[in-house]
Design a protein around this nucleic acid. Structure first.
Lengths: 191, 191, 191, 191
DNA sequence: TATGAATGAGGTTTCATTCAT
DNA sequence: CATGAATGAAACCTCATTCAT
């Protein structure tokens, strides 16, 4: 696949992401994706077998991107708490800087449009994060709870904070970021 | 509106909720709502002006129900922490016992299908909860953070926990409930 | 049929006339007729077997009314030309004073909604007018042309003048009325 | 737009015209237009944004065609009366040879289906005709009446004559044509 | 590879009419 | 007689997908 091709495929994905974030999963016909991406309807079907496939592809791309974002600047030798804060902030920053992506993921993650296969693959991207939590539990930095529950609680606080900004209810300042991360840590750290 | 009528209206709402939880906001045509509710398509439009109206109605109903559920057994004279745990558990129990409702709300809360008007009205149901948080901040039981941020963090932990069960990743036991609630409290209580 | 009944029947006819004049033959559902007439949908079907029947009834009513209107103040002993002007003016005045009726008739007279039977019956109301024209031809007051053609030409000038006002293009003053009637007479009188 | 496309668009317009003339503005569903034109329902919406748009387009097409037809063989150097007769006959011939078009226009000209915009545009096609009338008034060939009224009277006699044939009441012969045109001229010429 | 006209199944909604009350 | 909730056929229109060019 040459540059031209990669470009078109990406434009299709970008347009789909934007439109679904703007207008919703429903209300995003292929014809609009075609217009926004400047790729003809026929060509879209050259790159993807169906509309559903575009969405599943996008879903996986984003899942991977989100997982990767968390580890930006990660230093395995840093103290556990420091790494915890880094990853929490990384994740929140990602969500805040790409609101369309949060909107898309939230709409799709429940929808049956996403195949079980894609959901399964999406979970695999969580493995490093899950490992980080397990490490914390075992090393005594985190409470003795099921790591999956801890991960969900962390994720919940990040999404909760990001949605607050997304919904326009509160502008998330640096002070809010630090406070929220601290609250999350205070709740999960072993006493 | 007599009993018969109320019944039909409710059947329409129930069927819509179930179908959207099962199949997604998209992929729930009126024809299916008609079949599932055993109310003819024409009659559906006798009770609601549009499909959108059904969904908005449902959204508001659920928002109210969720807000009310939180206050079940609320005793204003109980200690603050006790009330905090009660409401956290109430909310989680609600989400766990009505997984279709969580699925529906999560799909809709971002979707442009929900009118700004309905979103606004939905927020009003949060007022008592918001008041409870503000009280905690002012009385020194909770950290000095923006009450809206605190509320979002609490909500995030509840939804995060509930989704964990909904996705089949972990069966939430009583022990998990207590642990998660405790973590939430530990993170937000004034030290 | 008592007064109450007559009243309801008339209200149905009046509402139908108004609505069709306002919104067109299409775009006038029975539900609106019901609302405007303050007669329930079910009751409408007590008075008329179908929507089509209402329209046919209305059509015949108006045809008769128009024919009658032409002869208002008719004096058989008056000179022919005087009677000609009277009837021309009567007819124009009728159309100008009841624009909804002109609008209705123009929309229906071609439509296949009007049964052949009703059209036939409508024509019978023209008999006196046709007789008046025939008389003029035979007495040498009018040109020696087919009376049906003469009647159509007269009718055409009246409708043409009335529509001019109806369309808002020109406000028909007394001077215009007289001028148009004179032109019609000048065109048809035997030289 | 290639020949194929033009062809389809025209077939849609032709089918719509025929069906409305036959069955009325109401009672002409898109499904029938699709069948008669041998263009799938979906494709119809590729060429026109709505059914209303088809009808408005048709309306304007016909208005232009009618206006153009009047001037067929027009010779500016011919005497006024000769030009008057030419245009009157041209217009009548047009209406008689295209009865579906007359039926369509008569049904639409009042209907609210035709947008104000289209009505306005339709009127512009009358400008040359209006100019011809004004010229006659100013040159002393026609009576000193409002040119708009004169035009309406002429139009009324043409439509009246054409409808006579359309309704099957009288077969319009050449003799009738000449007689009617003469009557119209006699009525409007300056004495 | 790329296009976009074409398709027809299926979406939402309307409506004339009926019937239990 | 009167009502209006109920119906389901059919209206208008959209959309994922295909295919001739």
């Amino acid at each position: 696949m040459d540059v031209q091709s990669t470009d078109k495929k990406q434009r299709i994905l970008d347009a789909t992401l934007e439109l679904i974030a703007e207008n919703g999963l429903h209300a995003t016909p292929v014809s609009q994706i075609s217009k926004r991406s400047r790729v003809s309807a026929g060509t879209i079907y050259h790159y993807f077998p169906s509309k559903e496939a575009i969405i599943n592809h996008l879903y996986l791309d984003l899942k991977k991107e989100m997982a990767d974002a968390a580890f930006q600047g990660y230093d395995i030798k840093a103290p556990y708490q420091e790494r915890f804060f880094l990853m929490w902030q990384n994740s929140l920053n990602y969500q805040l800087s790409k609101p369309t992506k949060l909107s898309f993921i939230e709409q799709c993650s429940i929808s049956p449009l996403i195949s079980e296969e894609a959901k399964e693959a999406g979970k695999r991207y969580h493995a490093p994060l899950a490992g980080f939590i397990t490490e914390g539990c075992e090393s005594g930095h985190l409470k003795k709870m099921d790591p999956r529950l801890i991960l969900s609680l962390i994720h919940g606080t990040i999404i909760g904070t990001a949605k607050l900004q997304l919904s326009g209810l509160l502008d998330i300042t640096d002070e809010h970021r630090v406070g929220a991360a601290q609250a999350c840590w205070d709740g999960l750290k072993a006493e």
